[in-house]
């Protein structure tokens, strides 16, 4: 009995293929696509999206959705700048940023598991709430209008500086390392197995003794913490926290997960899917912009991609179901004859 392909693995191969194809295409068309500078920029952008997507993938594999990640990035970013203003070092801010994001995630998890609201409504609403929180804490002048406020802490700013003279940012390194760790967690620990189990069939998982609420809450905390981490790095790079921080990020993060092979509804995909999806989207963005394509083309392509990917999943499920039924009928016939 050979291991059969499921839609998630097929999609992962498609994404890898697309990433390679894009690399080839862009490097042929543009001499500086493979330059150190461009690659480090590409990986910085991919990491910003990818960190959020990796955290989100945990919730999505568990069958949920987190639409509040954009809001978490916004609120955490602004809170972090405040924290550095009161004199905390960059590393302290980094840790507190992760904790703040995790706390937001905990709030989501609490509302979903204890107050029994659906994931969709909870995180949509809490997303508004977090964006609003960002606005509440945003820097304003005496007239109440928003203003730019630069980060002063040097250790904080150093988080957003290139590691090597030619480029390459810490956030990219952190992203790659965390994606690998998350892959190990998802496949080699109880937590990961249970997450797959509840995403695949919550009722069966519960009957087998899995503490569904606990796993869900941990998923939301992970999602929030990863978003918080991304917020710290982005504010450090941008040297400020604006209220447009994280805007529409939830959409891009879902797109990254779905394109990379995390199946909406749960049970399939992992951090590597999110990694590949984010890399692909960032590459597309980078390349298209390089060739003077306007942002709207990128938007349209991203929006269409998400639809194509999910339509692929739903059609694949239908076809493979039919095929399975047919196969079973055949095997049943050989058995009886």
């Amino acid at each position: 009995m050979k291991k059969k392909l499921n839609s998630s693995t097929i999609r992962r191969f498609i994404t890898i293929g697309l990433v390679i194809a894009l690399t080839a295409l862009f490097s042929l068309l543009s001499s500086n696509f493979l330059s150190m500078y461009n690659l480090s920029e590409l990986f910085r952008n991919a990491a910003y999206l990818g960190l959020i997507a990796c955290g989100l993938s945990v919730v999505m594999v568990g069958g949920g959705i987190d639409l509040s990640v954009g809001g978490i990035v916004c609120a955490t970013g602004i809170i972090c700048v405040h924290l550095s203003d009161i004199g905390l070092s960059g590393y302290m801010v980094l840790i507190l940023g992760i904790i703040t994001g995790g706390a937001f995630g905990l709030l989501n998890g609490f509302i979903v598991t204890k107050l029994k609201l659906t994931e969709f409504v909870t995180t949509l609403a809490s997303g508004f709430l977090f964006f609003g929180l960002g606005l509440v804490f945003a820097y304003r002048d005496d007239h109440g209008t928003l203003m730019a406020h630069s980060i002063k802490s040097n250790t904080y700013l150093s988080l957003g500086q290139p590691l090597l003279p030619g480029g390459f940012y810490l956030i990219s390194l952190v992203w790659v390392v965390l994606a690998i760790i998350l892959w190990v967690v998802m496949h080699k620990t109880e937590l990961g197995l249970y997450t797959f189990a509840i995403g695949s069939d919550e009722k069966s998982a519960r009957m087998s003794g899995v503490n569904v609420a606990k796993i869900k809450v941990i998923g939301f905390i992970m999602s929030g913490a990863f978003s918080g981490l991304a917020a710290v790095f982005v504010t450090a790079y941008e040297r400020t926290a604006s209220t447009s921080l994280g805007n529409m990020r939830e959409f891009l993060a879902i797109a990254a997960c779905v394109v990379g092979g995390v199946v909406l509804g749960g049970g399939k995909g992992d951090a590597v899917s999110a990694f590949l999806g984010a890399l692909f989207l960032a590459m597309l963005d980078n390349g298209l912009r390089k060739f003077g394509m306007d942002s709207y083309v990128v938007y349209m392509i991203q929006g269409s991609l998400i639809l194509v990917a999910i339509a692929f999943d739903s059609q694949f499920a239908k076809i493979s179901y039919r095929r399975r039924v047919k196969e079973q009928r055949l095997s049943a016939q050989t058995l009886t004859s």
Binding site: E190, L193, A197, S208
Partner: peptide
């Protein structure tokens, strides 16, 4: 109504909850 999780393997299902 079986209590198996479709996306996990046979072995993972057998040991689910008691890994």
């Amino acid at each position: 109504e079986l209590s198996l999780v479709p996306d996990l393997t046979v072995m993972e299902n057998i040991y689910l909850g008691q890994e």
